[in-house]
Design a protein around this nucleic acid. Structure first.
Length: 235
DNA sequence: GCGACAG
DNA sequence: ATCTTGTCGC
């Protein structure tokens, strides 16, 4: 049986999300943020490696100015990883290092962008949503591959920048397949928390440049974790 | 045994 | 996620 432990959570794979939901109810409800209020945004990503039969990971959070795209702050964390990757439970594996890094931030980003899903998740609590309750900030989920739910396939958006198709399952909008670059696979956008899908979409699209299909802060965090891994491995 | 499977 | 070189195409 797989034991999954994060902070005050301690679950097995078989356990449902009732404990989490109880935990979430204790949190303060924040009002949703709209796109025009955003001044700073953060990208979050992790990288992993093995050393002496032990898994390690490093997390990078990069905050940029929403309008100028300049980097404002860069923090990181590193440590052993003892939680396995289980589809649907990514947050349990990645949140400890994310929280540790986030605690080092001196600025409060208006919104966090994650590499992974938010509402587009079996229980609507993907990593972006789950993280929002620790960060108490708006979050957006952006996954690079599609997480299939209830055997529902997504509709491939047209091959044009900004083309998208909503992912609707049993009448509920889970997220949106979005073409952020032409001739490149779409990304899968969903609300994390304290934000709606259209605002998430606007924000993400304004953070795309020619270098990646992923928004700038997430891409920068991705590059940073690779640099950090080289650094931490050698010493 | 086979297929599914965010990162 | 990670292991990895060259290579096909815009």
């Amino acid at each position: 049986m797989k034991i999954i432990k994060v902070h005050d959570f301690n679950y097995t794979k078989e356990v449902d999300f009732k404990k989490i939901q109880l935990h979430l109810k204790k949190r303060i409800k924040l009002s949703p943020i709209s796109e025009n209020e955003v001044k700073t945004c953060a990208g979050v990503d992790l990288a992993y490696w093995e050393e002496e039969n032990q898994s390690f990971g490093t997390c990078s959070i990069i905050v940029i100015d929403y309008h100028s795209k300049e980097v404002i702050e860069k923090v990181c964390s590193v440590g052993k990883i003892n939680v396995p990757y289980v589809a649907g439970y990514l947050a349990f594996r990645e949140l400890p290092l994310i929280i540790e890094a986030a605690e080092k931030l001196t600025v409060e980003p208006d919104v966090f962008l994650f590499d992974g899903n938010g509402f587009l998740h079996y229980n609507h609590i993907g990593i972006a949503t789950h993280a929002s309750f620790f960060l108490n900030k708006a979050t957006i989920g952006i996954a690079k591959t599609y997480l299939k739910i209830q055997n529902h396939d997504f509709i491939m958006p047209e091959n044009e920048v900004g083309a998208f198709s909503d992912i609707i399952i049993n009448g509920t909008v889970y997220g949106r397949a979005v073409r952020t670059m032409k001739n490149v696979k779409p990304v899968f956008l969903s609300c994390g928390n304290y934000i709606d899908l259209n605002s998430s979409f606007e924000i993400m699209m304004k953070l795309i440049n020619e270098e990646s299909r992923l928004p700038i802060p997430v891409r920068l965090a991705d590059l940073e974790t690779h640099r950090l891994r080289k650094k931490f491995k050698s010493d």
